[in-house]
Amino acid sequence: MREAQFYNKIEDLIFCNLCPHGCKLSEGQNGTCRVRKVIDGKLYSLNYGKISAINLDPIEKKPLYHYKPGSLILSVGSVGCNFSCGFCQNFTISQTGETFFTTFISPEELISIALKYKEKGNIGIAFTYNEPSIFYEYIYDTITLLKDELDIILVSNGYVNQSPLKDIIKHVKAINFDLKAYNEDFYEKICHGSLEPVLKSIEIAYNYTHVEITTLIIPGLNDSEEEIDKLSLWISKLSPNIPLHLTRYFPNYKFQIEATPIETLVKLQRIAKKHLNFVYLGNVLLPSNTVCPNCNKTLIKRNGFEVQSFMTSNQCPFCSFEIEYIKI
């Protein structure tokens, strides 16, 4: 355990200020995330250093398609989440606060592991699998020790308050935000959160680091043409070059809706491309190449997680068009 950051005490109550839930807790109570608990009048992070999964992954698996394509990243996760989505693909670790099956790895040990993997192509550490913001203290301590020797990457639902986000995002090299939907009703009823704080997190992060966005398309819930049009238009106002990943849903956890038809994804990709230059489809066996928006030539060819890049800089090698949002 480690004492949590971002909380205050008023009389006998603890107020957690890490995320927009703003949990008001009494002695012995856990927050919505399941992993922040009041013990002896202080708030503690129960999942500090408790690692549930650690793997050397292709960076495309995050998914990040425009950040050092073809590289590998040491990916780590813990337990807990401040959302409770019924379709969660990692529900065995995200929807629990139990840590008996985890392994403790100190920030120093994690950095040592990541550095050892550099010879295999590892570029850094990705905090992923469960929501990293509720692993805040561990990430913060790791970043403090790391001192830019490796890249720090996050895969997040974006449901975090502005002050904690700003304190950490300037040290993060890239982040993929899981923008669940573009309607408040979805967030309230299915995620048990709200949309606006997520949009604000994306706006803040865009001013500091490389951002990509993923939306899992669930039939009948967030797959309307109108919603994806609005979602992609909103992203384009930040930048039309931010990559959007539209991902195929499969039944999981509490959701037994049939898998997203591929035709739906293709249709929604076409709609999103009215506003965005780079829209990819995930969880499907379809091409996911990066194409120059000016000359339409293939810049990065992908076959699953096998990647072939024809770029040596931010300029298209075929027409010299400058693509501002690719980090080679």
Score class of each variant (00 low, 15 high):
1 M>F: 09
14 I>R: 06
16 C>Q: 00
22 G>L: 07
24 K>G: 04
24 K>S: 06
26 S>A: 14
28 G>Q: 13
34 R>P: 02
36 R>G: 03
40 D>G: 14
40 D>K: 15
41 G>E: 14
44 Y>H: 12
48 Y>M: 00
54 I>M: 04
55 N>H: 14
56 L>W: 11
73 I>Q: 01
83 F>T: 03
85 C>Q: 07
85 C>E: 04
92 T>P: 10
93 I>R: 03
96 T>P: 01
98 E>P: 01
101 F>N: 07
107 P>K: 01
109 E>M: 05
116 K>D: 11
129 Y>R: 09
138 Y>I: 08
144 T>V: 07
151 D>A: 09
157 N>S: 07
159 Y>I: 05
161 N>D: 06
170 K>W: 08
170 K>C: 05
170 K>S: 12
175 I>W: 08
178 D>I: 13
180 K>E: 12
201 S>E: 06
205 A>V: 05
206 Y>E: 08
206 Y>Q: 03
212 E>W: 09
213 I>F: 10
217 I>P: 01
218 I>A: 01
221 L>W: 12
223 D>F: 07
227 E>L: 08
229 D>F: 08
236 S>N: 11
237 K>Y: 02
242 I>A: 02
243 P>R: 09
250 F>K: 04
261 P>G: 12
265 L>C: 01
272 A>T: 10
279 V>Y: 12
281 L>W: 00
283 N>D: 05
288 S>R: 15
292 C>T: 05
297 K>H: 09
304 G>D: 06
305 F>N: 08
312 T>S: 12
316 C>V: 04
317 P>S: 04
325 Y>G: 15
325 Y>W: 15
